[in-house]
Write a protein that binds this DNA or RNA. Structure first.
Lengths: 232, 232, 232, 232
DNA sequence: GATGAATGAGTTTTCATTCAT
DNA sequence: TATGAATGAAAACTCATTCAT
């Protein structure tokens, strides 16, 4: 019936509203620093109402991160699936994808960072934690796959693709943190995008340069000191 | 007098003990998650005693970060002062320096990251905040100076040195976060060092490659879309 | 009209359903421990609907106890009215009656007990409280009346009949509590009945024994130290 | 040292104060009905301070009941150990003991009753629950032992001693409940003692009467319908 | 008449901080 | 100087009750 349907949609909308409010507050203050009351206030609800939609603070937090990770995975995997692009172009596309994710949800990314950087995960109910971990692993694997092809096709020297994808990921997350901190000093906006693209360009050039090939060769002669992490 | 001196030294030592304990707990649980009682316990003191050495939890936290930033600055500036190294070598040295900092204090770095990623700074007493901000800026300037010379001497294309140093900084901090999160899955150690050096090498190669020069030239022709952040 | 009548009957039925559900939950968890939502769920209703039938949680609780007390009174009074039984037989019948009440509603009795053992009564709206109090008094008076006749007819020594009835009542309620607690240890069932009858038999024998007569006489000589409670 | 000793004594005293306050409030309102704030207020402390002495509300409640049960056990067992008393005298002594317990702590007994009459026990931390259960069982066994001897020495007919002790226990607890409820109507005091003694006398007479012996014999001929509970 | 959704008023519990000793 | 004890303020979470539909 129309009524039940409307109800369901409204309910879903409320859930989203709460997630948006939570995103804002958690991003600003971290998990412990944010209070349920504040989040509820931001969503223009009473705290009690919030508990009708989420069992507790933890579940709210995890739902938030999950939403973001899903969006990220989807975008990365789409780049991998795209036809007619050489690996270098795909790496550039990846930067675009990451930036899009950031634009879609600039705050929540720092939440994921914080989550990864802390023992919060251990406190999550098992099911949620597994979901979050799986999503992070999935995103990193999607990353690695792009480099994998680049190595196979001879665009990049023979380096563990996981390491390469980790580096790109690191540039990105590191830049996000940096931009946040810079915003505290001056309030210069739109710093992330050009800097991210510059970084990607530098790395793309570096990876495909002759010097890099020589470096790789040197390592191969003396034995690798780099062991790639196993994806989980 | 000898006595007064000894007293002063003992006091300083106690302070250091507390900072060490605080480092451990804050790193593990974040600012809000850590309790003063826990920190005092780790330092084998009563909470009340802790307050004889630090005015409050915030000041303790900030002192911690300040200690770390000072160490970092010192190491970076030393690289800059060193003679007989070309810019590329200095960039590599910088990676060594950063890794040393990480080894000296693997936990505290995540604290600085967390601090930068949040509005904690705003809650600090004015004087402390200024000190922390100044130190961060100083570290980033020291970074930039190295690239500045590289650009001046024609090693690197004509890019805002601040952007270059930000990128290196980002790789590093991003990798630290990543390593932490990976440690949650498997417990593979010593991933940071080789990956960091690989990243630096790739970037060094990229920056000094002909392709990068062409890229820069292209940007210059179409007008720069990148405006460097002003250090504060 | 038939319609209005059906409506009324349905309404009464709903009320009973709710009372049954409430009985179950209150018995298991006590007044404060039970939640309206849980009771409504047990009755397969929404909490809001429950409030159409009872003004609030208190009234629901009191209605429950009232229902039980009415049933108890009715049974006791019937024993009193029965012809052709000597007082000893009536005491035995009373035990049967009490046991029937227990069987009719094993849970609710503990609710009355709990209610009697606490200041819940004071919080009831005046009208309800008066009703509950009146019913309890009525039950105890019906009890006492049986002993009254036993004393008048010389079956029992000259003791305050109220005290005698109080003792029987106490044995019963005490045994109910005890059975409940024993069920927590082992799950032995049907302990109450034989033990109750044994107790009644012992007391009946005791009251009609010569020893008791002597004991009573002794008290009378030294002045009574027992003053019966005034029924209200 | 004297200081440490004084500290320890003061601390123990505070604990007792809190237990006394808790006794009062729990008795009046039950577990769920009582609030920590109220208990703390009664003890003239802040709620936070209360948590320095007890981990949570449950532990406080359980400690209370344990204290009471220990006192009760001790008194009963002392009666059993006493020399030169025949079983009938011991039963009378037992009534004295129970009344003493009641005087020592008139409120807390209703707490134990409530606890036994509800599923609270299941929610206690395992260790505490075991302690409470063990104490209750111990008290009932001590009871039974007295009747055991009475049966062995031919004072009482051959009835399950556990059943006899359960009956006495029931009279007592039932009377306590009854007195409480009567206090709500009129505020007549000192009703419990004479009524309890009267009950005990009646039962003692009953058990040792010829009629009882006949009754027992009758049961024996037709097979026992009473199976004693196994103590745990 | 029935109910999904909302919430105000509590509840237990925690913790940074103070202070008498 | 050091600390055990105390607490105000706030946090997460619950629940009886209301009300628009």
């Amino acid at each position: 019936m129309g009524l039940a349907e409307r109800r369901a949609r409204e309910k879903r909308q409320r859930r989203e509203d709460i997630l948006d409010a939570a995103k804002k507050i958690f991003s600003a203050k971290g998990f412990h620093g944010a209070t349920v009351e504040e989040i509820a206030g931001e969503a223009e609800l009473s705290p009690a109402t919030l508990y009708l939609y989420f069992a507790n603070k933890w579940e709210l937090y995890a739902s938030l991160n999950l939403r973001m990770l899903e969006f990220l995975c989807e975008r990365i995997e789409r780049v991998d699936r795209e036809d007619g692009l050489d690996p270098l172009q795909k790496v550039r596309q990846m930067a675009e994808a990451m930036y899009d994710v950031y634009c879609f949800d600039p705050d929540i990314l720092t939440n994921v960072l914080r989550m990864q950087a802390s023992p919060y995960l251990e406190q999550l109910p098992d099911k949620m934690r597994d979901q979050v971990n799986a999503k992070v692993a999935q995103a990193l694997r999607a990353f690695a796959k792009i480099f994998q092809k680049g190595v196979e096709q001879g665009y990049f020297p023979d380096f563990p693709p996981m390491a390469l994808s980790d580096i790109i990921w690191s540039v990105f997350t590191g830049l996000v943190l940096l931009e946040r901190s810079k915003n505290l000093f001056d309030s210069q906006k739109d710093y992330l995008k050009p800097t991210l693209f510059l970084a990607i360009e530098i790395m793309a050039q570096g990876m495909s340069s002759q010097g890099m090939r020589d470096y790789t060769q040197g390592l191969a002669d003396h034995g690798p000191e780099h062991s790639p992490p196993k994806a989980t």
